[in-house]
Design a binder for these strands. Structure first.
Length: 572
RNA sequence: GCCCCCGUAGCUCAGCGGAUAGAGCACCGGCCUCCGGAGCCGGUGGCGCAGGUUCGAGUCCUGCCGGGGGCACCA
């Protein structure tokens, strides 16, 4: 089923093309009418003709009477009002479509999404929230569009800290260490190791030797390292499950995975003539990057001590993703401060020929989570906030709100719901902000059931389900017609037809907040409709039409929320 | 010093170069013989500053002011 916007666009583009080949109609949703085409003035400019005259000519070429009325307004806008019959047929298709009007991609792509990326033997904290939530939403969106999504959890599982972590593990004894880690108390494990490392020279020396053993491939050391990794990954999985994030243990491909590829990176960069020895370090100097003294800025691939920098790992990862995984697109959901690093890595990979122009490679940058003081979000005592505690706290608040509103609700159901609403609150609050900006974390506001929140959207969905539950007869929607006499019904209908536009805007920019904005707008349209148009007491076609609007809205809400990683309960 | 991101209502945020800049919260005023009032309807209130480009600028460009971040061996 062609999206409404696409149908309009095609008709308009053809008429514009007849007057000025290739001209963009600049079709936009309109506050005054249904849609408006703003492209006339631009065409008039290039033709040096009066805009309204050009508009009239375009309208003469416009074959659109079967679906919409068009009138010329103001300086030369084309105001478009959809015909009732066209709206009705489009809407009928939507409410009978399991995908609610979202078609599959023309070509199924292979999309690598690098997200979450916690560190082994370290707690997942609020700093991982955005990468995890945004990345998982993008993963769900691309899967829904029919792409093959390859998630990559680029965990920090390598480097000098592992010497001290392994020695600490040995000091504790394996069983005791495992039990600490399996309880999810990763921070105390890490801190204890760190404290010994800083205070005890003998321990420090053992740690250094252990790093050498680890990097040298010593079997026993490797076994101990594996314990740390496995325990951590199991813990991460608990967090993902609690958050309802689709990342799995098999998506974990940490830094260590790329170790065997690093020599090849250095070798091939050198062979390509890109590698320069600078102060003992092997560097690439991609064009256009300068340091604070105006000198070329290096991407350090191999340090002067022969160790590899994370640039080497990231370059190896690009090669693996493009070469082995055959990705058509690679997205890195990583904080904005890494922008320059990724720009340099991508530039280097392009220069080395590892990243063809045909592969879209993009840093999906995001801003910080701030506290109410507009500084990095921390606990009152200045500690980083554990992700798991954040979820638990949100769940408690949601549970309290439910308890207050539904004192009689079954406890088990209430607790399940509370977790579900906590996820909705946390994810929606994060996703509804424009990605690259910082946002202020306010748990009270995000778990609120009123306003622009996840729970409000869930509530809108639950209300619709409540209506549908009361039906005692099956409703057939395949031949329903919509008269949409009430303005609120028509507004809701237009909102439903706009879902594909919201999806396109979301995917084109990798900005889930576009989808959030759309869903909230749709929910508001629905509640206005809900107030104005009783459903169950209506009769005949009016009843069927209103039921169909309910079914369509519920489905779009549920689908849209699911793409944000939020499941919409049927009752709450 | 250079580079990147960000300054929109009291607060938190939308706004794809288009007409009179929209929401949510808070505040004020309405709406329950009716499907879930967790709601709906209405009101008060705003684009950091100065230039420029454009038929048209919150949006693009330049400068300034303010906030955040990055700028050689930590990832």
């Amino acid at each position: 089923m062609p999206a409404t916007y696409d149908v309009l666009f095609a008709r308009l583009a053809s008429a514009f093309d007849a007057v000025s080949p290739g001209a963009d109609p600049v079709l936009r949703p309109s506050e005054r009418v249904d849609y408006q085409a703003n492209g006339v003035m631009g065409v008039a400019k290039t033709l040096s003709r009066p805009p309204r005259e050009v508009a009239a000519e375009i309208v003469r070429h416009l074959d659109i009477a079967d679906i919409a009325d068009v009138e010329i307004a103001g300086p030369g806008f084309l105001n478009i009002t959809l015909n009732p019959a066209f709206v009705s047929s489009q809407l009928r298709a939507v409410v009978n479509d399991a995908r609610t009007g979202i078609s599959l991609s023309e070509r199924s792509r292979r999309v690598v999404i690098d997200y979450s990326a916690p560190n082994v033997a370290k707690e997942m904290h609020v700093g991982h929230l955005r990468s995890t939530v945004i990345g998982d939403s993008l993963a769900r969106i691309y899967r829904f569009l029919g792409d093959t999504v390859i998630p990559r959890n680029h965990v920090g599982d390598w480097g000098t800290p592992f010497g001290m972590l392994i020695e600490h593990l040995l000091d504790l004894g394996e069983d005791s260490a495992v039990s600490t880690l399996s309880m999810g108390d990763l921070d105390s494990f890490y801190r204890a190791a760190r404290a010994k490392f800083d205070a005890d020279d003998a321990f420090k020396e053992r740690s250094r030797q252990r790093v050498v053993l680890l990097q040298g491939g010593d079997m026993e050391t490797n076994r101990l390292w594996r314990i740390l990794v496995d325990q951590s990954v199991a813990y991460f999985q608990e967090v993902y499950d609690k958050l309802d994030v689709t990342m799995t243990p098999s998506d974990v491909v940490g830094e260590s995975f790329y170790n065997p590829l690093l020599d090849g990176v250095v070798h091939d960069l050198a062979a390509a003539g890109l590698l320069v020895d600078s102060d003992g370090a092997k560097c690439v100097f991609p064009a256009g990057f300068e340091n604070r003294d105006g000198e070329p800025l290096p991407l350090i691939v191999q340090k002067s001590d022969e160790g590899f920098g994370y640039a080497a790992t990231d370059l190896a990862a690009v090669r693996d993703r493009v070469g082995t995984l055959r990705a058509d697109a690679v997205y890195y959901v990583v904080g904005a401060p890494q922008a320059q690093h990724f720009a340099m890595v991508f530039a280097t990979a392009r220069a080395a020929g590892w990243l063809p122009e045909s592969v879209r490679c993009e840093h999906i940058a995001f801003g910080n989570v701030l506290g109410s003081d507009r500084k990095m979000f921390k606990t009152r005592s200045g500690q980083t906030v554990k992700l798991i505690e954040l979820i638990d706290e949100a769940t408690e608040r949601a549970d309290a709100a439910l308890r207050q509103r539904n004192p009689d609700m079954d406890i088990a159901e209430r607790q399940t719901l509370a977790l579900s609403l906590a996820r909705a609150a946390l994810k929606y609050a994060d996703l509804s902000n424009e990605r690259q900006k910082d946002y202020v974390f306010d748990l009270d506001r995000m778990v609120a059931f009123e306003g622009d929140t996840g729970p409000y959207l869930c509530y809108a969905h639950a209300r619709i389900q409540s209506i549908l539950r009361r039906l005692d007869e099956p409703v057939s929607l395949d031949d329903v017609t919509f008269s949409l006499d009430d303005p609120s019904a028509r507004s809701l209908a237009l909102g439903l037809l706009r879902f594909p536009e919201a999806m396109a805007a979301t995917v084109n920019t990798n900005q889930p907040h576009r989808l959030c904005n759309y869903l909230f707008d749709l929910a508001q349209r629905f509640t206005s409709f809900y107030e104005a148009c009783p459903v169950l007491t209506a009769q005949g076609n009016e009843r069927r039409e209103r039921l169909a609007l309910c079914v369509g809205t519920a489905r779009v809400l549920a689908t849209g929320l699911s793409l944000l990683g939020i499941s919409a309960p049927d009752r709450m």
